[in-house]
């Protein structure tokens, strides 16, 4: 199985913000969910992948190609949906096909029109009359019509209703049935990622603070609810982060079962990706 994305030691500094030593791997046939707060560095990472900004250090390989030296080769097999619709208001969906067709060797106009039909997008309606959901579906149709091996999505499902999101997620799951295909997906909608992602990478203040298979994370990480006194009694090495509230304290633990064996009197539960984000974003070290 080949890796569709390999990022090693990626650094990019803007002065007040920096991506620090990002390492990420996305194996074929899987979906990597990129999570993190606003301004954590998700979009900057995606911009580095697409060579839209110049990195300070590190290496990025996409589908086996270097993302700078062999940029055009790599991009032939990449489909892209960013957080906005980049098509001009005065265009129509069919115009988008005409514009993109010469750019991609494998552009399939019939497939593009099939997607337009499947998503219920009128081919000749002006884009300015489209709703946000329709615009995202158009971007997705354009991203899929050249049969990309790698799909990169930056907040692509933000602002969409659950029905449309589910429809789009189904499309993603269909795409990765092929072992050569993969999806990198940054999103704030953690429930979407919990539904479809195989791997999760959490970027916090420009650093990857967590990167593992989603099932490993959900199976091993745990949340402990306790009193302040109980929290004091826990060995700091056994907890990752803590949160102290008026009505009690919570702690994030990495190995739920080991913690339960060591502290049988404390209740440790399964945790969610959202909880982990809240612990890292708002919690503190013990």
């Amino acid at each position: 199985m080949t890796n569709c994305i390999e990022i090693k030691g990626l650094c990019k500094s803007y002065g007040d913000f920096a991506l620090k030593n990002i390492d990420l791997t996305l194996p074929g046939g899987s979906i990597l969910g990129l999570i993190g707060e606003n301004g954590a560095g998700k979009t900057t990472t995606i911009k580095c992948i697409l060579n839209l900004i110049h990195r300070d250090a590190g290496e990025i390989s996409l589908l086996g190609y270097d993302n700078v030296r062999e940029e055009q080769l790599a991009k032939q097999d990449i489909g892209l949906v960013l957080d906005e619709c980049f098509f001009h208001d005065t265009l129509r969906p069919l115009d988008v096909g005409k514009i993109l067709a010469p750019a991609y060797r494998e552009w399939d106009q019939k497939l593009f029109r099939d997607y337009l039909g499947k998503f219920g997008l009128p081919e000749k309606k002006l884009i300015k009359e489209f709703s946000r959901g329709m615009k995202m579906k158009l971007s997705l149709s354009a991203a899929l019509a050249h049969r990309p091996k790698l799909l990169i999505l930056d907040e692509a499902t933000a602002g969409l209703d659950p029905v449309v999101r589910d429809e789009i997620l189904d499309e993603f799951l269909g795409l990765i049935q092929d072992e050569d295909h993969a999806i990198l997906m940054s999103s704030h909608i953690i429930s979407d990622l919990e539904k479809v992602a195989d791997y999760i990478a959490y970027i916090h203040q420009g650093e990857v603070v967590l990167s593992d298979a989603k099932d490993n994370i959900l199976d091993s990480y745990g949340r402990v609810g306790c009193t302040a006194a109980q929290l004091e009694s826990i060995d700091p090495r056994d907890v990752l982060r803590t949160r102290r509230g008026t009505f009690g304290c919570e702690a994030l633990v990495k190995d739920r079962s080991a913690f339960a064996r060591k502290y049988p009197m404390l209740l440790v539960e399964r945790t969610t990706l959202e909880d982990i984000m809240l612990f890292v974003g708002k919690g503190e070290d013990k």
């Binding site: 697409l50 055009q72 098509f87 001009h88 750019a103």
Partner: peptide, 18 residues
């Protein structure tokens, strides 16, 4: 001006054109 309004440049630079 139209391109700027649609933020087209970011998309165009992501296409396999260079």
């Amino acid at each position: 001006a139209y391109d700027e309004q649609a933020k087209w440049d970011r998309y165009a630079m992501s296409l396999p054109l260079g």
